[in-house]
Write a protein that binds this DNA or RNA. Structure first.
Length: 518
RNA sequence: GCGCCCGUAGCUCAACGGAUAGAGCGUCUGGCUUCGAACCAGUAGGCUGGAGGUUCGAGUCCUCCCGGGCGCGCCA
């Protein structure tokens, strides 16, 4: 990565200038393309600490870097206004990257080395009491994307779906089926969806299996697969819950009150203490969840990541408290809270109700707009923001969906390469120095930055950075295509092929198909 | 009432404390006898909800206010 080159040159320069202060400086891909490809604020930060003038210090550092740049990475290193140092990459460095992309192919943008961080990512974990809805779709896609991102940067990752096959909701499902058969209304907190008739006459286990299988099929259509489906019931059967509670009790973190057993979560900063075993001697969902997460660590995972809807955010404190009480490394337990999806038909919000069964299922959305568009739609926004999903818009404008913008660019690239009959040959014979058009340069720089985008997106758990990048890459390619005739120009064919590989890898990382024609 | 999240162009959304806040859709104007027009080029559109503060620098951090979402069970 270019950033690594800059980092190490910068470090050497600072050292040789005698600047040893620990500084939280940044080296970033520049937004001001007119000023350079990369920029750093190190001189601004160092100047205030050393009480020097930022601009002067910046010049000093920039000069040093130039003298140390024996490989000729930069064609220009200069300074600007408050004290930024701007780096412009040399053509030879860009050409080298093109060859690199060609050689790495599918590995381009992925880290070769494993980090050895055995990690478990849990998401969706919907109740097996009905079809998945649009909200689940968001967690499914985001979770799957984060999983792909983490694997791409070398994390040893497993994914898991927790099945709540025990508890009140399961009994309510049965009661709802019974009520329906007997022509009665939907029980309080019960389920009224049309699917209820589909599971009539089944045993409880058969009902859950049936609904779970439906969920699995829907997820399959989205390309979301889990390494493991973990039923809550196994925690009860295997005494895991009792063991976890006992462990807390042995640490003096529980007490009895009103016939129930409580966990002292206030001691860990929670608002109130929480019940582990109810007065009726049944354990709570909380107790099972504690046992479940303890089990995750016991299974050898060093890092845990959960994705929850914001409707469960109040639950974070108590679970982390319990995990702390059990002596697990909570600092390795990350919970990503996603905001909910509001569904609209035009300007009318669609009310979702499990009781009346009024809902738009994820299955229906996929039917309407397709798996690729569904994935893109959920991938393209920050999970920390509410999402307004207008069904009318999604249906009507399906061909305007940005996903087609990326796919079209990919198809175009493939078409050109096909027409040129350019096989998977090496680039060595091609004179890349002919690539000197501004549009070509811009495209090359965008390609070069790809591994850093992956890195950043993985670190921040922000898959939408990948969709943003994809849009930018496609736009630069289309623009380049308008300006530069490719056929008959070997150097440009190399560039198109590198673009093709990169864009395909973008789509791969998003779980979206990369069609060769459309 | 308390806690968490959000408020950016007409709409849907980007912007890991950096430089001139960016895209898509919608508006308006051009571009296919030539590699794929599902595209491109240009145009218009903003006091980043409001007020203070911290900083060399704030859409981003802190405080308060306004508006919206979600929680605050011996439900899951």
């Amino acid at each position: 990565m270019a950033k690594n080159n800059i980092d190490s040159l910068l470090e050497k320069s600072l050292l040789s200038l005698g600047i040893k202060e620990k500084l939280a400086y940044r080296v970033d891909i520049s937004k001001r393309k007119d000023l350079g490809d990369y920029a750093t604020n190190v001189a601004i930060l160092a100047a205030s600490k050393l009480s020097q003038k930022p601009l002067e210090l910046a010049s000093k550092i920039a000069k040093k870097i130039v003298t140390l740049d024996s490989e000729g990475i930069f064609s220009k290193v200069d300074v600007a206004k408050p004290g930024f140092i701007n780096f412009t990459l040399s053509p030879s460095y860009l050409f080298q990257t093109l060859s690199n992309i060609h050689d790495q192919d599918h590995a381009w943008g992925r880290k070769k080395q494993k980090t050895g961080e055995k990690t478990l990512l849990e998401f969706v974990s919907a109740n097996p009491t009905g079809p998945l809805h649009v909200g689940h779709g968001r967690w499914a896609v985001i979770g799957d994307n984060i999983g792909r991102l983490l694997k791409a940067v070398g994390v040893e990752l497993d994914t898991e779906f927790y099945i709540n096959d025990v508890g009140r909701q399961v009994n309510l499902l049965e009661a709802s089926v019974r009520a329906k058969r007997e022509g009665q209304g939907v029980p309080i907190d019960g389920y009224g969806g049309s699917y209820i008739v589909e599971i009539e006459g089944k045993t409880q286990k058969e009902m859950l299996d049936y609904l779970l299988n439906q969920q699995r099929q829907t997820l399959d259509r989205l390309g979301v697969k889990f390494d493991k489906w973990f039923p809550e019931s196994t925690l009860h059967d295997g005494k895991k819950i009792k063991e976890a509670i006992l462990k807390l009790s042995n640490s003096g973190l529980t007490y009895k009150k009103d016939g129930a057993l409580w966990f002292k979560s206030i001691e860990f900063g929670d608002d109130k203490d929480r019940v582990l075993i109810r007065e009726d001697k049944n354990s709570t969902y909380f107790a099972a969840d504690v046992a479940y997460h303890l089990d995750k660590f016991d299974r050898g995972y060093r890092y845990l990541i959960d994705i929850w809807g914001t409707d469960h955010h109040g639950y974070v404190k108590r679970l982390k408290s319990a995990m702390k009480g059990l002596g697990t490394p909570v600092e390795n337990f990350e919970i990503i809270i996603g905001q909910l999806v509001t569904l609209y038909r035009g300007s009318e919000p669609v009310r979702m109700s499990k009781r009346t069964g009024e809902m738009v299922t994820l299955e229906e959305v996929i039917d309407e707009i397709g798996a690729d568009a569904t994935r893109f739609f959920f991938s393209a926004t920050d999970v920390n923001s509410h999402l307004d999903f207008d069904l009318e818009l999604a249906k009507k404008k399906s061909s305007d969906n940005p996903v087609y913008y990326l796919q079209y660019a990919h198809a175009r690239m493939c078409s050109i390469l096909k027409k040129s009959a350019r096989g998977p040959t090496s680039n060595e014979q091609v004179d890349l120095t002919k690539l000197d058009h501004p549009a070509e340069r811009e495209l090359m720089v965008k390609l070069l930055v790809w591994p850093e985008v992956v890195d950043q997106a993985a670190r921040l758990r922000h898959p939408h950075r990948i969709t943003e990048y994809g849009k930018e890459l496609a736009a630069l390619f289309h623009s380049f295509y308008e300006k530069c005739k490719v056929l008959g120009n070997p150097a440009r064919l190399v560039l198109v092929d590198a673009s093709r590989i990169t864009l395909r890898n973008v789509l791969e990382l998003l779980g979206i198909s990369a069609p060769e024609r459309m």
